[in-house]
């Protein structure tokens, strides 16, 4: 998959900057929590990929996924969860909530590219 517009959601400014650099050439919207991410999505319906942290203030990644599900945006909008939590239980929870892939931090540009490339076209 080659995303046209990405929404990156993370409470770490470092990570948001990292996404901008890693995804250079692709427009990237930045949100510091799930609530901001929902507001951005409402104004940018052309977002075709979300990179989502789990542990965030205001609204967590899992709550954001639940809200997306209620809005009927899943599974149409692919969401890759990117988290420091690599426990199998947490990974399964993220996938059960509607994420299509789970990437553990730390990661590099190669792993991110591979995760995005593995998404089926049209997701």
């Amino acid at each position: 998959m080659l995303p046209k517009k990405v929404l990156a959601v993370d409470d770490s400014k470092l990570m948001l900057r990292m996404y901008e650099v890693m995804l250079r050439g692709t427009p990237v919207l930045l949100a510091e929590n799930g609530q901001q991410a929902l507001e951005l999505l409402a104004h940018h319906p052309d977002v075709d990929l979300v990179l989502l942290d789990i542990n965030m203030p205001v609204m967590s990644g899992l709550d954001f996924l639940a809200a997306l599900g209620q809005q009927g945006k899943l599974p149409g909008l692919p969401v890759i969860v990117v988290s420091t939590d690599g426990e199998e239980e947490q990974i399964q929870r993220g996938l059960a909530c509607g994420a299509v892939a789970y990437l553990t931090k730390p990661f590099d540009a190669e792993r991110l590219r591979a995760a995005i490339a593995a998404l089926p076209e049209g997701e």
Binding site: K13, L14, M18, V21, M22, D108, A109, E110
Partner: peptide, 20 residues
């Protein structure tokens, strides 16, 4: 080269953010 670029990205962002 891609691996090296990937490492340099991490270093660039870390330095950028430390002094931002």
């Amino acid at each position: 080269s891609e691996r090296q670029i990937s490492r340099l990205m991490n270093l660039y962002v870390a330095t950028y953010q430390l002094h931002a």
